[in-house]
Every structure is written in C-alpha cells, then in structure tokens.
Simulated assay, not measured.
Amino acid sequence: MTTVASQVILHPVVSQSLKFGSTTVGRDKTYRAVQYYARFLTWYLLNKGDKHNAARWNALKSHLATARKLLRLGKPVEHLQAALRASLASGPASEQILAIGKQLAYFGYLSYDAVVWANAVKFFVLPPETAQRVTKTSNRFWLAGILFSLVHGVLKLTRLTREAKMLQAGKSWGEKDVGEETQREARLNAVKAAQAAARTQFLIDILDVWIPATGAGITNINEGALGIFGFITSVLGMRAQWKAVTGKQ
C-alpha cells in the first residue's frame, strides 16, 4: 500500500502539477478556466430554469473574479516595464509601436481593475453610477490592449511567414557550407516556434476580444458564448504556462 501511495503522490505528473500551481500565472490561468466555465454553466442552468444551481455557480464565478483581481494588483507596473522594454527593443517600428500601445492599454485596464476590486470588497464604496463607469473604462482599456495585440499579431505573422519562406528557399538552393546550413536550420526552427506562439496568441486574442467588447457595451454576446470563449483561451494559456514551467507539451 505504501508503495502504491508513493507512486501516486510522487508521480512526475503530480510533481509537475505542483510546480505549475506554484506559479502565479499557473494559478491565475486555472482560476480563470474555472471562472469562465462557471460563467457558461450559470447561463446554461438559467436557460434550463435551474435557478438554485445557477446561483451556486454564479457565486463561484464572482468570487474567483474578485480573487483574480487581487492577484493582479501589482501587474500594472509590470506592463509599464514591458512598455519600456518594448520601446528599447530593436525590430520593425510598426510592431514596436503596437507592442508599446498594448502594454500601456493593459496598464490602464489593470489600474482601473484595481479600483473595481477595491469597490467589490468594500474597501471603499463608489456610487453605483461611478462603479459602472469605472468598470466600463476598465473594459475599454482591455479591449484596446487586445486590438493592439491583434494588429501586432497580424504584422508579426506576416513578417515571420516571409522570413520562413526566404530561409526555406535558401535551403532549396543547396548551399554546401555546413556551417551556414546549420545556422539556417536553427534560425528556421526559431522562426517556426515564433510562428506557432504568434498563432496561439492571435487565437486567444480573437476569442477574448468579445469579452471586454461586451463589457464595454460595444457588442452584445450572450454569457454562454463568453464563458466558452474565456474557458478556451484559459486552457490555451494553461497549456503555454505548463510548457514553460515543465518543458513538456
């Protein structure tokens, strides 16, 4: 029995899961997945007329949303740092400007989000009209950040695709210099990895964009669809963080 328990408790997947859960990003993505699944399930149960169970899942969704806001209290400064690093980085000017815009928009979003959290936990109480205006402004900044990211993703994918074609064309010419060929293969692999990451981020952005757009009153997507969109992007984010932490797919 002890051997079986040891094999379960000390299994590599358990150890990797603990390592994943020990990171702030890992916990946040997990909470987010549950939050948006609860959002979908609340909508589904209400449509079925099951108000009792819908209330339970809605409470879970609300508490997780509040908890995640607390986890993000220091992140506005991270995005300011990211904006500064983007301004100092080399690369196409258009991509650089969009990257800076994205980070500044996320700074605004998370700054207003902190005010939303403080009001939610009654640290200070805003009038209902003010609270609604702050929430809408937060969603507008979030929407702006995603739109910057989408345009940046299109430009980056276009550039990477062009670079990949050039590298592959060079390979087809059959240069015999082994050193150059090795460097070309390494660069091509790096470009392909960057393409995969950019495609994943583009998919996340194209699904997530509807959440702040609806929160800002620009679109009117139902709660069920928003829950599914958020759940999918959360799982994609969890997958990326799992790979970063454990080095495995």
Rank of each mutant, 00 (worst) to 15 (best):
182 T>L: 11
51 K>C: 03
244 A>H: 04
15 S>W: 10
102 K>L: 10
15 S>K: 15
113 D>H: 13
91 G>I: 07
25 V>F: 10
172 S>W: 02
106 Y>Q: 00
77 V>C: 06
31 Y>M: 14
53 N>E: 13
123 F>K: 14
48 K>F: 06
84 L>G: 11
182 T>D: 09
67 A>V: 09
234 S>A: 12
239 R>K: 09
105 A>F: 02
171 K>P: 04
3 T>P: 03
195 Q>M: 13
89 A>I: 10
37 Y>E: 03
20 F>P: 07
87 S>R: 08
100 I>C: 07
9 I>V: 09
37 Y>F: 14
118 A>K: 00
172 S>T: 01
34 V>F: 10
8 V>E: 03
57 W>E: 12
152 H>F: 15
4 V>K: 12
91 G>R: 06
55 A>V: 04
74 G>W: 08
130 T>W: 10
142 W>P: 08
41 L>P: 08
239 R>Y: 08
116 V>E: 11
74 G>N: 10
198 A>N: 05
144 A>H: 01
36 Y>N: 02
215 G>E: 07
205 D>P: 01
115 V>Q: 07
204 I>P: 00
155 L>N: 10
58 N>W: 05
118 A>M: 04
149 S>D: 13
154 V>I: 13
189 N>M: 13
208 D>F: 03
185 E>W: 06
61 K>A: 04
173 W>M: 15
229 F>S: 12
188 L>W: 02
35 Q>G: 08
85 R>Y: 10
42 T>C: 04
114 A>R: 12
231 F>A: 09
155 L>S: 01
249 Q>R: 15
208 D>L: 11
24 T>N: 13
101 G>V: 02
176 K>E: 15
37 Y>I: 13
142 W>G: 09
108 G>V: 02
239 R>P: 05
144 A>G: 08
60 L>Y: 11
223 E>A: 07
211 I>W: 07
51 K>I: 12
245 V>E: 15
211 I>Q: 12
89 A>P: 09
104 L>N: 05
7 Q>V: 00
111 S>R: 07
194 A>N: 13
103 Q>S: 14
137 T>C: 01
98 L>F: 02
91 G>W: 09
195 Q>N: 01
225 A>C: 05
189 N>T: 13
150 L>W: 01
74 G>I: 00
160 L>H: 00
162 R>A: 14
78 E>S: 08
77 V>R: 08
147 L>P: 09
80 L>E: 03
165 K>P: 02
196 A>R: 15
48 K>M: 13
164 A>G: 01
23 T>K: 00
126 L>K: 06
157 L>K: 01
108 G>M: 09
80 L>P: 03
246 T>I: 03
192 K>Q: 15
246 T>W: 00
193 A>I: 04
30 T>Y: 03
146 I>L: 10
33 A>L: 07
211 I>K: 14
212 P>L: 07
221 I>C: 09
205 D>C: 14
28 D>A: 06
198 A>R: 01
161 T>H: 09
92 P>S: 14
173 W>C: 15
245 V>D: 15
26 G>K: 05
34 V>M: 06
130 T>P: 04
130 T>D: 10
71 L>P: 07
184 R>K: 03
187 R>C: 04
201 Q>P: 01
126 L>D: 00
173 W>Y: 10
196 A>S: 15
181 E>D: 13
69 K>D: 01
203 L>D: 14
70 L>N: 03
42 T>R: 06
176 K>V: 13
170 G>Q: 11
